[in-house]
Amino acid sequence: MSQHIEPDAVCGASGPCALHGRSQGAIAVLCPSDLKPTGSKKDDLSGVPVVGMPSPSANSVRPGVSYFHKTHIIGDKFSGDPVAENLFAGHSRMNLSGMKRCERKMIKQLEAGNSVLYSGQLSYADPSDQRPDAIQMKAFTKAGPLFNARVQNNDQWQQTC
């Protein structure tokens, strides 16, 4: 099935969704104006409940370093909403390696003035799991597919995208 961005697509249009309290995924048309400037303040997620997040004491590797992040499906750097439907308990290495590599590709497109159609869909190995086992990240520009990558939610550094 071919994916493309319609010329009249609405920038920033997104739809994070949840089922039984767990995030499921989101889709957005990202426009250059959605990209936060480098050095912008990150979202304050301290008051946002995220299913599957361990307690602060159980989540600490050492002061300032945690095993799990409140991970955005539509990233903070793309003005993704800091709401429970757009967040999941993602292993820090998933967030800082596999997802980050894909996000860098979208950043380059947005900095070049191109819009990006992005989809992030979470998968759960078991219906009762509180943490997803992976996220399927897909992105398209007017020129065609940018990436289609499955990023595992584990403690391994990942090379994706």
Rank of each mutant, 00 (worst) to 15 (best):
R62G: 02
N95H: 02
S55Q: 12
S123A: 13
E103N: 04
L146N: 05
M106L: 09
S23I: 06
I27K: 15
L146H: 00
A134I: 05
S128I: 08
G52P: 12
Q158A: 05
I27T: 15
V10S: 05
R62T: 15
K41T: 14
Y124S: 04
P145T: 15
D129W: 01
E103W: 02
R150K: 13
S23M: 08
Q152R: 15
Y67H: 14
N59T: 03
D129Y: 03
N148D: 13
A58Y: 07
L19Q: 09
G52A: 11
S123C: 05
I27P: 08
G52K: 06
A134T: 03
F68E: 06
W157V: 15
K108W: 04
V83C: 10
G15Y: 14
S57P: 09
S2L: 10
A84V: 03
S97P: 02
H4M: 04
M1F: 04
N114M: 01
G64Q: 12
A84Q: 12
Q109H: 03
H4E: 07
A112V: 02
T38G: 13
A28P: 07
S40W: 06
K42N: 15
C161P: 08
M1K: 07
Y118Q: 03
D126I: 03
K70A: 13
D76S: 08
G52C: 11
L122F: 01
Q130M: 09
D43S: 15
A134F: 01
G52W: 07
P82K: 05
D34R: 08
K42H: 12
K41R: 15
P127R: 05
K105C: 04
V65F: 10
S115C: 11
A112I: 01
D126P: 02
P132F: 01
A134Q: 08
L146P: 02
G12K: 10
D155C: 06
R93S: 04
Q152V: 09
A28S: 15
S23E: 03
L19E: 14
I73E: 13
M94N: 04
S23K: 09
S97I: 03
V65K: 14
S119D: 02
R101E: 12
A149Q: 11
L117D: 00
S40A: 14
K77C: 13
G15S: 08
L146I: 07
H20S: 15
Q130A: 08
S66I: 08
G98K: 00
